[in-house]
């Protein structure tokens, strides 16, 4: 009962945080607008007014931020559960870099233009990289320990980024537009992007939500899960596919945004425990809120221009990562 109340309180705080961050994201920026303009824009009044147009330009970005943050964060939950490893995250595992590499490769050698094929490329790249990094880390007798996973991820990520540089470096005009794929930003997204992203993310989130009971069982231990009649292999593959799909879609449209998938699930887990249903929902809410807040912070710190949200999430997330490492028991590293 107490646990339920706690979950309710945290959900309420999360929704409130999300609401505040959305308001901030729409009103604050190079041109700040008032709440009345926001209401006008939503109701479709005063369409000639400049401020209303500003609001309409910021809406897709904010919506995209919510979806991207939620996807990344849920992707982190799934990866951490499958690998049974507290620091698994798309950026630590090098999955984002893999997705970026495939996209950069596709654009410069096959002249691929459509955003749908970006998603396809990103998915293939992310899937291959995550399988590779995980296999690499689980060689040897002790399995994929956090340190082996982190080193394999960091190493592969370094290797892949030098490949990206090779493709990008020769042409400095190309370099300016490709910088995006190395940093990650939710600015410059449009309504089309959201419509493109939504089916994939909704599918993946629904599937992972359906899997959550099975994931709970798997937390006990593999043997117990098998004894309870769970098809471990299928659960794991489905969850992994969802996790990869979620971060691949986001990376395809926004570039690599790091550490959201690491810090949000960790914070949620430490306050409500590891039951997957509330974990997935709350990670989604808080992930969206934090990504939007990072984006707003980027606009404040980067004034008069703005700072890419990928940079902001790394600046906030890296200290959280170090904090998690510091708190972890020595044996579990």
């Amino acid at each position: 009962m107490k646990q339920n109340n706690k979950i309710k309180t945290i959900t309420l705080i999360g929704i409130l945080l999300l609401f505040i961050s959305v308001i901030l994201s729409i009103t604050y920026g190079a041109k700040s607008v008032g709440l009345s303009d926001v209401i006008d824009a939503l109701l479709g009044r005063n369409l000639e007014d400049y401020n209303v147009n500003v609001v309409q330009a910021r809406l897709p970005r904010t919506l995209f931020g919510i979806i991207a943050g939620a996807s990344l964060s849920i992707s982190g939950v799934l990866m951490q559960s499958i690998t049974r490893n507290p620091i698994a995250d798309p950026s630590i595992l090098g999955v984002n870099t893999g997705a970026s590499l495939f996209i950069v490769f596709g654009i410069s050698f096959f002249n691929i233009q459509s955003k749908l094929s970006y998603i396809g490329l990103a998915f293939v790249g992310a899937l291959l990289t995550s399988i590779f990094v995980y296999r690499l880390a689980s060689l040897g007798y002790s399995g994929a320990t956090p340190i082996k996973l982190a080193i394999s991820g960091a190493a592969i990520s370094t290797a892949l980024s030098s490949l990206i540089s090779i493709i990008v470096m020769p042409d400095s005009s190309v370099m300016t537009s490709f910088r995006f794929w190395q940093i990650g930003s939710i600015g410059g997204t449009s309504t089309d992007d959201i419509l493109l992203l939504l089916p994939f993310t909704v599918l993946a989130i629904v599937v992972s939500f359906l899997l959550s009971d099975n994931l709970d069982t798997m937390l006990l231990s593999e043997e117990t899960a098998i004894a309870l009649g769970l098809n471990i292999g299928r659960t794991r593959i489905l969850a992994a596919l969802c996790g990869v799909l979620l971060c691949a879609c986001t990376t395809a449209l926004a570039g690599p945004i790091s550490f959201i998938g690491l810090m949000i699930p960790h914070l949620i887990r430490s306050s409500i425990g590891s039951s997957h249903k509330p974990l997935i929902i709350l990670s989604g809410i808080y992930g969206g809120a934090i990504l939007i807040i990072s984006d707003v912070l980027g606009r404040i710190l980067g004034a008069p221009g703005e700072l890419e949200s990928g940079i902001m999430t790394a600046l906030i997330g890296a200290p959280v990562f170090i904090y998690i490492i510091r708190k972890a028991k020595l044996q579990s590293l």
């Binding site: 620091i87 950026s91 630590i92 956090p146 340190i147 982190a150 080193i151 960091a154 910088r179 190395q182 940093i183 790091s258 550490f259 980067g302 221009g305 700072l307 890419e308 990928g310 940079i311 902001m312 790394a314 600046l315 997330g317 890296a318 200290p319 990562f321 170090i322 490492i325 510091r326 972890a328 020595l330 590293l333």
Partner: peptide
């Protein structure tokens, strides 16, 4: 923390690396 540990040093370093890279990107963008 509770003594020096190589694995913790490496993991902390990876985190610090990400932080510094973000700072560098920030300056390059500005």
């Amino acid at each position: 923390k509770n003594g020096f540990s190589n694995s913790r040093l490496i993991l902390t370093g990876i985190g610090a690396q990400a932080f510094f890279t973000a700072l560098i990107n920030w300056m390059v963008m500005r």
